[in-house]
Computed example of a mutant assay.
Amino acid sequence: MTIQQAEIGKNIEEIQTNAVELNKRFLIFIDKFNSIGANLSRLNKSFNEAVGSAQRRLLPQGRRFAEIAGQNGEANLSDAIDEEVREIQVGEG
């Protein structure tokens, strides 16, 4: 084997080692990224539940008190968030 061939072989091994390490790091990143997405989904669900509760229970009661007091009982409330959080899919494709 010539010196040049030995260096090429060494470079191939180094590239392979680095590729394996990069793949491991990428998979760890995807797990963390998808965990963030799951937390955002839970937060979105909680937010939407709070909006629904306010619209169904809290605001109607507040309007009744406002009417009794002769005041305007309208309040501005954020809309529910309908967007879904996407997940990175790892696999063939």
Rank of each mutant, 00 (worst) to 15 (best):
F47H: 10
I36N: 10
S46H: 11
I36Q: 09
G52Y: 02
N44E: 13
R64N: 07
A38E: 14
P60F: 03
L59S: 01
R64L: 12
A54M: 14
N48I: 04
A38F: 03
K45A: 14
L40E: 11
F65Q: 05
F65R: 06
L40K: 10
R63M: 07
I36L: 15
S53W: 08
L40S: 07
E49I: 04
P60H: 02
A66F: 03
A66G: 09
S41G: 12
I68L: 10
G37N: 14
G37F: 09
A50R: 07
S53G: 13
L58I: 13
F47D: 00
L59H: 04
A66V: 07
F47T: 01
A54E: 05
Q55R: 15
E49H: 06
Q61P: 01
G62I: 09
G52M: 08
F47P: 00
A38I: 10
Q55S: 15
Q61M: 10
F47C: 01
K45V: 08
Q55V: 09
Q55K: 15
S53L: 09
I68N: 02
F47I: 06
S53P: 01
L43G: 06
L43V: 01
A38S: 15
G52I: 04
F65L: 10
N39C: 04
I36R: 07
L40N: 12
A50L: 11
N44C: 13
G52E: 12
N48H: 04
E49W: 00
R56E: 14
L58V: 14
A66S: 15
G62T: 03
V51D: 04
R63A: 12
K45N: 12
F65H: 04
P60Q: 04
L43K: 08
K45Q: 15
R63P: 02
Q61W: 05
R57E: 14
G52Q: 10
G37V: 10
R42T: 06
N48K: 07
R42C: 00
L40T: 08
N39V: 05
S41E: 14
L59Q: 05
I36Y: 14
K45W: 03
K45Y: 11
R64A: 13
L43E: 08
E49V: 04
L58E: 01
L59G: 00
R57L: 11
N39Y: 07
A50M: 11
R56L: 12
F65T: 02
N44A: 13
S41Q: 14
F65M: 11
R42I: 03
A54S: 11
Q55C: 03
L59C: 00
G62K: 04
A50K: 07
A54R: 02
R64P: 00
L43H: 03
S46F: 09
S53T: 10
S41C: 00
F47M: 01
S41V: 02
F65G: 00
V51W: 04
L58C: 02
G52N: 14
N44R: 15
S46E: 15
F47S: 02
I68W: 00
I68T: 09
N44L: 11
N39D: 14
R56T: 15
L43P: 01
R56M: 10
S46A: 15
K45D: 13
P60N: 02
E49P: 00
G52D: 10
S41R: 09
I68S: 07
